[in-house]
Design a protein around this nucleic acid. Structure first.
Lengths: 123, 123, 123, 123
DNA sequence: GTGGTCTAGACCACT
DNA sequence: GTGGTCTAGACCACC
């Protein structure tokens, strides 16, 4: 499960975990029906609390990425890759929109915003 | 002061307040030297705790937006447009970085992110 | 009464006023028995509140610089110049000691402290 | 944590706390990465409000002394000795300036101030 | 368990 | 009147 957790990041651990698993699914490293590591196993592997892993799995289930079967484990849910990709894009688009709006509200021009964005993404 | 507080937002009240005041200053509704409502008055007006308003004012003072004089009140600080602009840029840059990081964590390529950004900013 | 009040200084106005009057007395611009401007007159002249002037006079009386006679006014008290000067020196010495102590506590050497002091006083 | 709080001092409790912790860090009693007592624990120990401790920790974090991780605790930040030294110098310089200003306001000459300073630091 | 935020009300210092 | 500080206790998010 090649997942890296950054303990000193401002992003909560459970969210980093969610994002990593979403990415794995998106890239096809995890496919429909695949079983995920148990909460306890993954917690041990990543040296984080089992409750934190549980929270991530719960969140992924709520978003339709996983299906959990009591007593058996958690499995990658059935959605086709394209749909999944769309969901992710929508999520990021929404956040980009928010930042752009805030920038404009604070008086930055679109040109300035573009320059900032390109500078960051290409550093 | 035409400020709207959303009590059910995940954004802390004091932060919503900061953003609103920054916006007012930026748009010229509040100018250098203008006095702000006293913490108690604004608290009453917005139906929130005076301490919450105080926290927002403290944060704005730390960022150089306000100057507070004991026993007199809080005033819009004197910064030139360029300095203010630098502060704002730093803030937006930080947020852009966060979104780009998240996009990458979710498996989007830099090319995809760029396309999304340009599409949004030019619509 | 050539006194300058800095409204944006961190030093309280009443303290600035005290210090200025002490200095006048120390320099002999105000001598034993001289009458000071009435609270209201001085307040008007300096464009500050009469209560603030009153507080300064009270403080100076408590320190033995003034004597106030009800219905007549406030007068410079009788202490010889040398005594007065000693009081002021004691006050400043105490504050210098505090800063030096704090500097040492935080790990600065006496040489560093001396350099800093001389740099500041000669700029 | 061997910290002493003086409730009747004019120095705010949260500031006394800040100074004590800075001192501990500077003296090496608290080292990079060390965890500090939780706000609640320290509050109980010192018999003060948890909010007051929180305010001190916030201030130390703003000054780069601490890093706080949500749900985990506050840790001594990683700064090299030189950076830390710069911060301390700035702080002491500011205080020296204040005392020198006050001395001048009270009519002491720079020569007198220098003599007093050298006498104190060499006693 | 941890920190993050908010409240309502108190007392003090400054104007 | 103003801001500055402190308290005790609450609820939430995160680990």
């Amino acid at each position: 499960m090649n997942i890296i957790i950054n303990h000193s990041s401002m992003v909560p651990i459970y969210e980093q975990l969610c994002d990593s698993i979403k990415k794995h699914i998106h890239e096809g490293l995890l496919c429909e029906g695949d079983i995920l590591p148990s909460v306890r196993v993954l917690a041990k592997e990543l040296k984080i609390s089992a409750l934190t892993v549980k929270k991530a799995y719960d969140s992924l289930e709520a978003d339709g990425y996983l299906v959990t079967v009591h007593g058996k484990g958690s499995f990658v849910a059935k959605i086709n890759a394209q749909e999944r990709s769309e969901v992710i894009k929508k999520e990021i688009e929404k956040e980009l929109e928010n930042v752009i709006d805030k920038g404009r509200r604070l008086g930055l021009s679109d040109t300035e915003l573009k320059e900032m964005f390109l500078l960051i993404i290409e550093d």
